[in-house]
Simulated assay, not measured.
Amino acid sequence: MSIAASDAVRPPIVAAGDAGSGIFAYCSQQYRVVFGAGTAARLGEETERLGIKRALVLTTPEQQDLGRRLGAGLGDRLAGLFAGARMHTPVEVTNAALRIVESHDIDGLVAIGGGSTVGLGKALSLRTGLPHIAMPTTYAGSEMTPILGETTNGIKTTQQSQDLVPDTVIYDVDLTVSLPPHVSAASGLNAIAHAVEALYAPDANPLTSLMAEDGIAALARALPRIMDAPADAGARRDALYGAWLCGVCLGAVGMSLHHKLCHVLGGMFNLPHAETHAIVLPHAAAYNAAAAPDAMTRVARALRTSDTPQGLFDLARRLGLPRRLADIGMPEDGIARAAEMAVRSPYANPRPVERVAIQDLIAAAWRGDAPAQH
């Protein structure tokens, strides 16, 4: 079964209700979603709907064979394959792909892969205005957000624009079945991080909070099953559904301390994106726990635990994910430098972002300590 969003462009929805002060705003994103098993077969139909005649397929080097296989379904609409997408969207990679776009009369982009590939598609679409189709193969959720993080000389910066949201997202559960369990787990914790922060964002609202809690719950029940039985179709469907909801949440509200820390750490030390999120998340939740009790209650309920930071830490341990930043390549002498960078231009956060406390948080994550309030 597949579910397709309406073709009509949807206007922003502004609603009022019981959220915080009793007043809130909710703006819907303008995109189309096709969800289900076997929906990759709809790629040709979706390119035709967007008027794409010369599509450039984007992948990482590891997924270029998948890109060729799915791209073949485009027939004469396939103009080329660029298999150079990399973590943290380095601008030099974007510029290399842009030269191909310009020299081959490309009029549309198809990003097949995880956050690295979708990020490249966003960067190219932003620079060219070309339509962008995303086909996620992980649970990162980037395809649902109007956010782009790009890295230049080790510094990662973010920008936000509705133009960054892909025009169509094709969620095919079948494309995730071959995702290795470890990668699935890290990607899923990354998605959960989106929803956790959405629950205490200053612009949180009842709709995104409902999606956040449901998304966390879907991933929390699916990921352990995927570790035990990677081909479990029901678990894969639940995980992809949860990732979709968590990505929507991140796209609808602002980011806070957790994402700031991960952007700093990933950009400065070229750390693996999803694993960084998985390690930092319990510590960021502990930092904000006292300042965001309602959010912690909802996360705990979704995780079926009484302690949100510890529950997130235990879930990562159950999934066999690394618990120490030291284990994924961060040097100990980078702790102070990262803390200094993290307190510059901080994102809105429930608790004030304090230099000493942030350094303690990063140090605890570097050592792999259990989460504790700082």
Rank of each mutant, 00 (worst) to 15 (best):
A55F: 04
V353K: 12
P131V: 15
G266C: 02
V34N: 09
Y139I: 00
M268I: 01
L207H: 02
Q29G: 11
V91M: 09
R355S: 15
L265G: 00
R323N: 02
D105K: 06
L321S: 04
R367N: 02
H374R: 12
V34A: 08
L78P: 11
A316W: 01
S256H: 06
P136I: 04
P293L: 13
L312F: 01
H259Y: 08
P350L: 04
A286P: 10
E340F: 06
S6G: 07
E150N: 11
V299A: 02
A338H: 05
M144T: 01
I106P: 02
A316P: 02
A218T: 09
Q159A: 04
T151K: 07
Q64I: 13
L124Y: 12
G22T: 09
V169C: 10
G251W: 09
Q373D: 07
V169A: 06
R355H: 15
A201G: 09
E62R: 14
A40N: 03
R355G: 13
E150M: 15
P282I: 02
H88Q: 13
P146M: 07
E102F: 05
T145G: 00
L70C: 03
E48I: 15
L361R: 05
C262E: 00
L50T: 09
A204D: 14
A229Y: 06
R323P: 06
F24E: 11
A286W: 07
R32T: 14
T176R: 01
Q160F: 07
P282M: 04
Q159G: 07
L321H: 02
L109M: 15
C246D: 09
L109Q: 15
L361K: 04
I192N: 13
L240G: 01
V264S: 08
R69Y: 05
A79V: 15
A239R: 06
V299P: 03
A290M: 11
V183C: 07
L179Y: 01
H283N: 05
E92I: 01
R68C: 12
P166V: 03
A348M: 10
H273W: 15
H88G: 04
P224Y: 07
A191H: 04
V299W: 03
K122P: 07
R337F: 10
D172W: 15
Q160W: 08
E143P: 00
D228M: 06
T157A: 11
A316Q: 01
P180W: 06
D167T: 13
V169E: 06
M144W: 02
